[in-house]
Amino acid sequence: MDAITANHAALARVARRFESQALGALLKPVFGEAPKGLLSAGAAEEQWRPMLVEHYAQAWSNKGGVGIADAVYRELLRAQSAAQGLQPGETA
């Protein structure tokens, strides 16, 4: 793997992590408003719910997400090219 490919892979991972965090922030209120059932609303659920939301968000992002990662990835590439003084689409 050459340096450019490794750099693009690293940027893609960062973009997916960002999307995962964004999805987690969107899902958190949904899980907070979930109806309380017979086996829920205990102290254990309160402790584990954030981890469950995080896992759902990561899984959703890893399966393709909702497009946030793609937009972030393109913006990271654009910003990196601009910082290097390159035109969009050029490589160093």
Rank of each mutant, 00 (worst) to 15 (best):
M1N: 06
D2H: 01
I4T: 10
T5P: 00
T5K: 12
T5E: 14
A6Y: 00
A6I: 06
N7W: 15
H8V: 08
H8S: 10
A10T: 09
A10N: 05
L11N: 12
A12D: 01
R13A: 13
V14Q: 14
V14P: 03
A15F: 00
A15Y: 03
R16F: 02
R16N: 11
R16W: 03
R17H: 11
R17I: 03
F18P: 01
F18I: 05
E19D: 06
E19M: 11
S20N: 03
S20I: 02
A22N: 11
L23N: 03
L23E: 05
L23G: 04
G24I: 05
G24P: 11
L26P: 09
L27Y: 12
L27K: 07
K28N: 04
K28C: 03
P29Y: 04
P29E: 00
P29S: 04
P29Q: 02
P29N: 03
V30D: 09
V30T: 10
V30Y: 06
V30G: 02
V30I: 14
F31N: 02
G32R: 08
E33K: 06
P35K: 01
P35I: 00
P35Y: 00
G37A: 08
G37V: 05
L38K: 12
L38T: 14
S40V: 02
S40E: 07
G42V: 02
A43T: 12
A43V: 13
A43E: 11
A44F: 12
A44C: 02
A44N: 03
E45K: 08
E46Q: 15
E46T: 15
W48N: 09
W48Q: 12
W48T: 13
W48C: 05
R49Q: 10
P50W: 03
M51H: 15
L52R: 14
L52P: 06
V53W: 04
E54T: 15
E54A: 15
H55M: 11
Y56K: 04
A57W: 08
Q58R: 15
Q58N: 15
Q58S: 13
Q58Y: 06
A59L: 12
W60H: 10
W60V: 13
W60C: 11
S61Q: 10
S61R: 06
S61H: 02
S61G: 03
N62W: 04
N62P: 00
G64L: 01
V66T: 12
V66I: 15
G67T: 00
A69H: 04
D70H: 05
A71E: 09
V72I: 14
Y73E: 07
R74E: 11
E75L: 10
L76V: 01
L77M: 07
L77F: 02
L77E: 11
R78V: 01
A79G: 10
A79T: 12
Q80L: 09
S81R: 14
A82R: 11
A82F: 09
Q84M: 14
Q84Y: 08
G85P: 09
G85C: 13
L86W: 10
Q87I: 11
P88T: 09
E90N: 07
E90Q: 13
T91M: 13
A92S: 09
